[in-house]
Design a protein around this nucleic acid. Structure first.
Length: 284
DNA sequence: CCGGTCACCTGAGTGC
DNA sequence: TGCACTCAGGTGACCG
């Protein structure tokens, strides 16, 4: 579900609420949502102080200072993961449907002192690390640079080094970390580049244009708290950037630029939306 | 190396 | 109303 702007919004909301608070209790109702041993997960988190919450790529990192060495909790929301505040789930029967983990925080009013992880499709994962394991795990992810921070020369170099279709390469988190299906389609449209283009053939002018448009769109979306198309929301509500989508989920509608019908095709298993007239490139 | 397909899950929407 | 089918913002495994 969430891409860079949505994860950024969620991480910022979380940071405001949990920074400086201590996790007094932790509980898991669906063990598979936790990577590794669930009892260990709860033990490591109990009594841990939250130093802050940050985004990296599409991951969320809770920076922790735990009594038994916990240094961080990493969360990947995948398609439908979300956080909300609510009452602490008492006992086995106290859980609301789709809520899988809960963290009770110090200093919040009763009834909304539990940070709850909800995930309808159960694809997301939560995992706690000590200092050494964290470094090792993050290195193994091999994430590329953040699209908001990467320099244009590096972006050009990384893109043109890859084979395959431009869209697939942009979705590869080891090339650049944070773009997903919505923002790749929107960025390619804004930069007038075909999702089917060969990255190796792109000129520096084209990759610069793509990066500039991607940054502009990502920043505008963050300012709008992201795109809510089904069930994404931050702690303080959803976003409104979906109103600004030009091509995503608009197959058959007229291109806002030239009026031709927006096309939809499946590329690398992902629905892909673009204007074949404004984004000319290789045929299927 | 590369692309395609499926698996992981559940619910919403659509068409008959 | 109900059923069958498709689709969904992500990633990782597997196969040819």
């Amino acid at each position: 579900m969430p891409e860079l702007p949505e994860v950024q919004t969620i991480a910022s909301d979380l940071d405001e609420v949990v920074r400086g608070r201590t996790i007094t209790q932790a509980a898991v109702s669906f063990p598979k949502i936790v990577a590794g041993d669930e009892v260990m997960f709860v033990d490591l988190l109990t009594g841990a102080k939250t130093l802050g919450v940050e985004r990296f790529g599409k991951w969320i990192r809770f920076n922790l200072d735990g009594p038994t060495g916990a240094a961080a909790m990493l969360v990947h929301l995948k398609m439908t993961g979300q956080f909300h505040l609510g009452p602490w789930p008492e006992g086995k029967d106290g859980w609301v449907k789709h809520d899988h983990a809960a963290f009770r925080l110090s200093g919040l009013p009763a009834g909304e002192d539990a940070l709850i992880y909800r995930d309808m499709r159960k694809f997301g994962r939560l995992r706690v690390f000590d200092r050494n394991d964290l470094t090792e795990f993050v290195a193994e992810l091999g994430l590329g640079p953040d699209p908001l921070l990467v320099k244009s020369a590096e972006f050009h170099q990384r893109l043109t080094a890859r084979k395959g279709k431009l869209k697939s390469v942009l979705l590869d988190q080891t090339v650049v970390a944070g773009l997903g299906n919505i923002y790749v389609d929107e960025s390619l449209f804004a930069a007038r580049l075909s999702p089917l283009a060969s990255p190796a053939a792109l000129t520096r002018e084209e990759t610069d244009r793509l990066l500039k448009e991607a940054k502009r769109i990502l920043k505008a979306s963050i300012a709008a708290r992201g795109s809510t198309t089904s069930n994404y929301q931050g702690l303080k509500g959803g976003g409104s950037f979906q109103k600004t989508h030009n091509v995503y989920h608009r197959a058959g509608e007229p291109c806002p630029s030239c009026g031709a019908a927006i096309e939809r095709l499946v590329l690398g298993g992902r629905a892909t939306h673009y204007c074949a007239r404004c984004q000319p490139g290789e045929k299927k």
